[in-house]
Design a protein around this nucleic acid. Structure first.
Lengths: 283, 283
DNA sequence: CGGGTCCTTGAGGGCAATCAACAAGTGTGG
DNA sequence: CCACACTTGTTGATTGCCCTCAAGGACCCG
């Protein structure tokens, strides 16, 4: 195995004091590999495009801190938001597979992104095949999130859709330690909700009022408060399993450690399903 | 580079004489690796579930021949079809990442699937890191398809949605040599269209009549005929770029060879962007 | 012939879009 | 300091896309 990296790296102080701790829950040894990967950490202002539709994209970005959206602007000017990118997520994986980016990615907040040039990414295949496998494997996780979005938009009414989105964001932020017990901070405008869920702005407004009136959820001053978690969860038919790749530790059946949600959670080092299976075939 | 495999393998006769040639357009040397991978080729009857929601999934399946759908049944009995799986596609990649499958996969036709147990898949990381990288990289391609579905459902009216779906299927089938110039065969019921696009069956029926009346597209006896390709394409705002991972050959600018659409098209061996970049870092 | 699947048609209604204002907060520059 | 632009949220009136419910027809098969 590779040498251990000081664990302090994993829980270093946040780059922006005062901001909630952006705990990137990456296994420390993997983190070391990755840190060797990313060449430059870049500060990005809010509202800035990291990737622009129609322009070539030759790198993958790890969002270290901040939030972003992936979206497409249609011919008629409509916007469809495809996904929200939170700390620990990778951006640009889809875009890199094509001559020219199919979607744009724009920050919502001040953000810190680590650029990973594709050559370095692929070099990892030769130098650390297993870490690369975990990384690539983690990319497939976005499919589940997109699938759930598809289900929500295709088959759920507007109130359920909105509730589902707010719960997904809550759960994902909670996994990276950026949510309180029943609330989180995020610059989520009604326009963004409408563009993510295929609704109109006025209707989103009315539905949000209804949800607030029913004591389910409140949005005010960039803070989303889930007033009644159980009721909202059942109302939205929200199953959070699609956000937990694998029960990270199958050995300690009694342990209740929260599942690690990160690029590497799929194959916890040496433990769990993948870890064991990989070990079987390692040299 | 690895030794050449008899090219005949790539264009072997179809397993079912009479069926349209299911040309799996996989680079021959890669094919050899993969053929060493898949342990068993299985025949599956139409309408059979390959993967069932809620049950563990410990293998990936390569669909060698036939078609399938990935879907979820909601609490209230509604169904949302998330994707159509065609020959050359992988099934189960998303499901494997979770303790229990989140979606079901069911064949539409008689199908031939190759089972790839996960241990073997990960073993490839050590034995053939670069082939594994291509494979994993190809998994990320599904995000583009899902994203386009999301855009269609979220922001397009029913007629455009349907037109877009029919064009996507045409393009994907064309890439594996299973479409004629302006038509293709597929057991696509109106119920499936409605479940894929979030519409009701009666409305799909009416819209299809309209499209037929407008001379755009006809569905009859499991054959979809695109009567006016240009008009339908522009009507649906259909851009097929999301189905072509990378222009496979950037060297021969003049050559007009159709782009290979397969698991390995992303990194054509020795050529193209990835090939070159990988070569840079290979031993 | 009965049953199944799939397609078709009609009537009625509701969810959500569109259009159009207006309010409130923020930042900017004169 | 205030006018102005801009963003975001809010409300009302009207329209329509598309759903629901219901029924019937065509076809295949045991």
């Amino acid at each position: 195995m590779a040498g251990n990296t000081p664990a302090a790296l994993a829980r270093r102080t946040p780059p922006f004091p005062g901001a909630p701790l952006p705990t990137l829950p990456i296994a420390t040894d993997e983190l070391a590999v990755l840190l060797g990967l990313h060449s430059a950490s870049r500060n990005v202002r809010p509202g800035q495009e990291i990737i622009s539709e129609g322009r070539p994209c030759t790198a993958v970005f790890l969002i270290t801190d901040g939030m972003a959206i992936r979206y497409r602007i249609l011919r008629d000017g409509q916007r469809q938001i495809l996904n929200f990118l939170l700390p620990g997520d990778f951006a640009g994986v889809t875009s890199c597979r094509f001559d020219t980016a199919l979607y744009s990615i724009k920050t919502l907040t001040h953000a810190v992104v680590s650029t990973i040039p594709l050559p370095k990414l692929f070099a990892l295949c030769d130098s650390h095949p297993r870490a690369a496998a975990k990384l690539f494997w983690s990319f497939a996780g976005e499919t589940a999130v997109l699938s759930e979005h598809l289900i929500a938009i295709g088959r759920r009414a507007a109130p359920e859709r909105i509730a589902h989105l707010l719960l997904e964001l809550f759960t994902r932020l909670q996994r990276v330690g950026m949510a309180e017990e029943r609330s989180y901070r995020m610059p989520l405008t009604q326009e963004m909700i409408s563009d993510a869920l295929g609704l109109s702005i006025p209707y989103v407004n009315r539905v949000l009022q209804q949800l607030r009136h029913d004591g389910l959820v409140t949005i005010k001053d960039q803070r989303i408060v889930i007033e009644n978690m159980d009721e909202l969860t059942s109302f939205a038919d929200f199953e959070n399993t699609y956000l937990q790749p694998l029960s990270s530790d199958r050995r300690g059946a009694g342990s209740r450690a929260p599942a690690v949600y990160s690029a590497f959670a799929a194959i916890p080092g040496g433990a769990g399903r993948w870890g064991n299976e990989l070990a079987t075939f390692s040299t």
